[in-house]
Design a binder for these strands. Sequence first.
DNA 1: CGACGGCTTGAGGTAAGTCAATCCACGTGG
DNA 2: CCACGTGGATTGACTTACCTCAAGCCGTCG
Lengths: 253, 253
Amino acid sequence: MHNRWAMKMEQYTRFSDEDRRLLDNLVSLKQVQFGAREDVLREGDRTDHCHLIVAGLACRYKILPNGDRQIMAFLVPGDLCDAEVFILAEMDHTIGTLTPTTVAMIPGAVIEDLLTKPVGLAKALWWGTLTDLGVLRERIIDHGRRDARERIAHLLYELLIRYRMVGLARDDSFDFPMTQIDLADATGLTPVHVNRVLQQMREEQLILLRNKTLKVVAPERLKDIAGFSANYLHLNRAHDTDDGLNRRTGDLV
Amino acid sequence: MHNRWAMKMEQYTRFSDEDRRLLDNLVSLKQVQFGAREDVLREGDRTDHCHLIVAGLACRYKILPNGDRQIMAFLVPGDLCDAEVFILAEMDHTIGTLTPTTVAMIPGAVIEDLLTKPVGLAKALWWGTLTDLGVLRERIIDHGRRDARERIAHLLYELLIRYRMVGLARDDSFDFPMTQIDLADATGLTPVHVNRVLQQMREEQLILLRNKTLKVVAPERLKDIAGFSANYLHLNRAHDTDDGLNRRTGDLV
DNA sequence: CGACGGCTTGAGGTAAGTCAATCCACGTGG
DNA sequence: CCACGTGGATTGACTTACCTCAAGCCGTCG
């Protein structure tokens, strides 16, 4: 079993064996299992642990006064929910699972210690937070200036890249347990409209969506439709393709 | 002349005289003047300096393949454009001015030094970056689940709060040099539609917009319309009102 | 087998977009 | 000091992408 967290950060930097051991150790310290559709951390919560997605799928969301849910980001294995616990007093949004999910709990003090030490690991951790910023900015563009089709294409393509990063995409296909309602809440569209767009994408042989698995049949075409450019993910280690990943194997290096 | 940067960070923590002197010093090291509608930093640029808005108004934006511009955030005095230069290789978006703007250039190495030292200043700096994250998340909600009126209300109210924070709002009014086109590019709406919404807000005596100055006539009503909750700004120092600011004077403490 | 959650489909409605003309404030040069 | 040009604000008429409501379908699970 790989350490997806380390894999992800190795997009940015190469770790020493010692670093990797440390990371492995942190991940295995304490793990908690959540069911589908449970909250890991709620808006307003204070916690002294960092939460790392080990397996499964979660998201950041907020419920608005009128009851609408807006999903702001999906969290895939290797993603840290709250690297910043030790700086901000309380959560300003909720983290919830979509499927059964394993979460590693890492003492905030340990992370704080790593983050404030001028070593490679600290930079890699901050890189994670900063690419989150990039992803959010991209989502704003999605919502502001892309139509439904482009928006969904962008979301799907970004997920493909992120799953590849942590070795969870084989052959351009990956686990896709989210409902069309989840997708709607993430894209700011209606479930009905999401449905119609997905239908069209299937008809066009862009994607294959069956059994909770998404296969991107025509990644290049999807990427074009999305107007996707990977620079905001800051994958500076691998240069073999313009999205920073080896498309043949879905692997790095 | 106040140091808006320090003022902003003092929402989070209280500085020692020594810290404040250091910040003052950093701001005055080197300042550059930009005209209106000039780029400070372009997508793809590499720089070894951090850029801090001292006076004026700028924004983060991206131009899409089809020529559309999406403004992702406004940068007001006291905002840092790129605290993270020393981590990320290159800019993934552009920083441009809207009005003539004074920018302080701070050597990246100095910031890096501050950020990686386990002192209060480091936390305050990261707090800045993390609240940026919160602001972005809020903008996603804007675009995903709020209609034009709510979106504009939210943007205006947030600006009011942020201007108050740095002592640039008196009596609920502040400099408002942006055009309706800028506003449209930020909200993901059409200039025409922005115009109609603003008109309506004026008719309702919500706002007064004249001579490049915005006066929020009915802040509470605007806040309600926006569905605004300030928790995402993490203003933990001041507790006198629920948005963390003293509404009478627009000042803190 | 029935219930339930998620997917699909259709018909009609609306917020916001498009296009295009006009107006207005201002700055500039003759 | 006025004519002109330019960028922004405004207004109106028309279009459209996406929403709403509502029904039917399908797989799964108790």
